[in-house]
């Protein structure tokens, strides 16, 4: 028995190894041919010397104001996402409808909204409102509707129905049970989820600049293309520190909401 188990385990391990070798075989490793340790070390060394003077120059194009812009895009996008997610949640929560078709349609719409990456939304909205931060806001907003709508619906379906039943027992209608039983119970959870997605939104807002949707990403990509490593490192440092601080802040608020 033990021998067969061991052979089986060995077989699985060999199979996985063979699969990995097959994967590695087919990948084009040629970009390593131009790789030299000397230039790599040079890049890393200049990345370790951030260009502090670029952080704040007083103009609207310095890294500080671009980071504030990125946070604003994240905040506005999350606000749009949170507000628009609520009607979708009401549409797609199974426990709010006697008819099983309506929630299925709602969930399908949310799945479709989530299937598109933010970058694709950003490119579409750039065509609609022109390049700039507003395109980024709309891209993040629409993507967040799909994300938050799904999470909100799951929380709605998982909620404790006793308060709802108590309200119905004393004759409350649908709107009244919504306001007096469902919302008080779900509000802290929804606020917590929205805060968590605000942090995620800031992180993705910092990348949307790559396609021209505002924020710090465009500056970063130009700096990378021009190989201005001290500038790259101050931008990355700003993004990392900001996201880290937001993580701490939203974590603190979320802990208090519970």
């Amino acid at each position: 028995m033990r021998a067969t188990a061991r052979i089986k385990r060995l077989g699985i391990a060999l199979g996985v190894l063979a699969l990995l070798v097959w994967c590695a075989w087919d990948i084009d490793w040629s970009s390593f041919r131009y790789f030299s340790w000397g230039s790599f070390r040079g890049t890393v060394m200049s990345l370790l010397r951030p260009d502090w003077s670029a952080f704040y120059t007083g103009s609207t194009e310095d890294i500080f104001s671009l980071m504030v812009m990125t946070i604003a895009i994240g905040f506005f996008g999350t606000s749009i996402g949170t507000i628009l997610a609520i009607p979708f949640t009401i549409l797609s929560a199974r426990n709010l409808w006697k008819n099983p078709v309506v929630p299925r349609i709602g969930k399908f719409v949310l799945d479709v909204l989530r299937a598109f990456p933010e970058l694709v939304y950003a490119i579409i909205f750039i065509k609609v409102v022109g390049p700039g931060p507003f395109a980024g806001v709309l891209a993040i907003g629409i993507h967040q509707v799909g994300m938050l709508g799904k999470l909100f619906t799951e929380e709605m379906e998982r909620m404790d129905e006793t308060a709802v039943e108590a309200c119905q027992a004393v004759g409350a209608n649908g709107v009244q049970t919504m306001f007096f039983a469902r919302i008080p119970q779900l509000m802290p959870i929804y606020a917590s989820l929205a805060l968590n997605h605000f942090e995620i939104a800031v992180r993705s807002a910092s990348t949307l600049g790559l396609v021209g949707a505002g924020g710090i990403g465009a500056t970063l990509i130009f700096a990378i293309q021009a190989a201005r490593w001290p500038r790259v490192s101050i931008i990355l440092l700003t993004v990392i520190v900001t996201v880290f601080l937001l993580d701490l802040l939203t974590g603190w608020i979320r802990k208090r909401l519970r």
Binding site: W29, S30, F35, T207, L220, I224, L236, V239, V243, F244
Partner: peptide, 19 residues
Amino acid sequence: TIPNLLLAALLVAVIGIGE
């Protein structure tokens, strides 16, 4: 914390483009 798109952009710059 580093968004994966920025990570990819950075690595493309440092190592070069490719799979």
